[in-house]
Amino acid sequence: MSAAGTVLSVRHLCKSYRAGQPVLTDVNLEVMIRSITAVIGPSGTGKSTLIRCINRLVEPTSGSIMFEGTDLVRLRRRELREARRRVGMVFQEYNLVERLTVMENLLSGRLGYVSAWKAWRRSFPREDIERAFELLNIVGLEGFADARADSLSGGQRQRVGIARAVMQQPSLLLADEPTSSLDPKTSVEIMQLLTDIARDRGIPVIINMHDVGLARRFADRIIGMAGGCVVFDAVPGLLADDALKKIYGGEDWMH
């Protein structure tokens, strides 16, 4: 077991979609409680694969992922479902159910805890509904409970996405390029909201991103990936030009 305060510990994680062409080659990282970790790196270097391996939306080829005392890689169907309830996820394309209302989308974060029949009847426990309304206020969407998700703007949808992930009351939040589909101003607002909520609740977050500036501004730790493994891992203050060169290659783009 690892040191106290470690929420997630990834060891020797490898993933190849096709044999002989690894996307992740031996990734090792630990995530501590109350930390905001940004993962940066060029496109196609496996950032998204790494995040998706953690909650097994993508099956890892080998390695271990210790989370709350269990190795997520070894879990079978039911156990995996139960573990996934403890990991919230925010997506680049929001991935809301478009034809459902905002409230239904929030409550879908509780589907792991409610029987399918009760979910169909929309009879969720009272505390879930209370928490959903509370979260709607926090993400700035009070009054939108009965609006359909497809009537919202991109920024509003991502707010719903964040609220849905937090509805799970997770011990870990994963965000896969949460701002890549948004304009710069909305991106800052969404990052602010995501990190505020996470800090308030003491939930550690791992965020994939393309925007180095946003990563510096909001994360307290930056992981740089290149060629399927971690090549930089330090506080944002140490992310200097030579590190960026190592992560993205070349230097013409920096000036």
Binding site: N55, L96, R99, R110, G112, A116, A119
Partner: peptide, 27 residues
């Protein structure tokens, strides 16, 4: 995407069907 999100939240198959697939195919 939306089905993936429900799976990531730990929703069982029947709930993914009723919350994820059904609203999309209802019309």
């Amino acid at each position: 995407g939306s089905i993936e999100a429900l799976a990531a939240a730990g929703a069982p198959w029947a709930s993914r069907l009723s919350f994820g697939y059904w609203p999309q195919v209802k019309p």
